[in-house]
Amino acid sequence: MKSVIFRTVAPVLTSLMVLFSVFVLLRGHNEPGGGFIGGLIAVSALAIYGMAHGVETVRRAIFFHPMAIAGAGLFTATFAGLISIFAGVPFMTGLWIYPAILGVEIPLSTVFLFDAGVYLVVVGAISSIALSLEERGGE
């Protein structure tokens, strides 16, 4: 798309949407949200950026190949389930730690790690599809 307005707004919109997607991912533990929906928001952000500045720019910006991101997500999710092997509890049992970072207690859990994996799988897989569709559409 050639519109100057769109090309100017797109980077701002993209960064806002990616930020919001992370917010939705973090919010997902106790409230509506989570890895899947967060991932979809992030993919929409990448797709908008791709429409404005071309697919190549997006591919360079995310650095890794989308499928590699999806693979990393799947690996993270599997690993999150397997952590419980060390605690001696069944597969995928939620385990929590509360490290204090800069004086603030941060609750971290394997549940969140799993959700982050889901986020990455969705980002990788759907953006792979979206980017190749945009590439074809531009021809």
Partner: peptide, 20 residues
Amino acid sequence: AWLVILPVAWCLAIGALLVM
């Protein structure tokens, strides 16, 4: 008991590694 879940988790982990 982990042997029940390991075949699946193992295949998923190796598959994910290969995708990466």
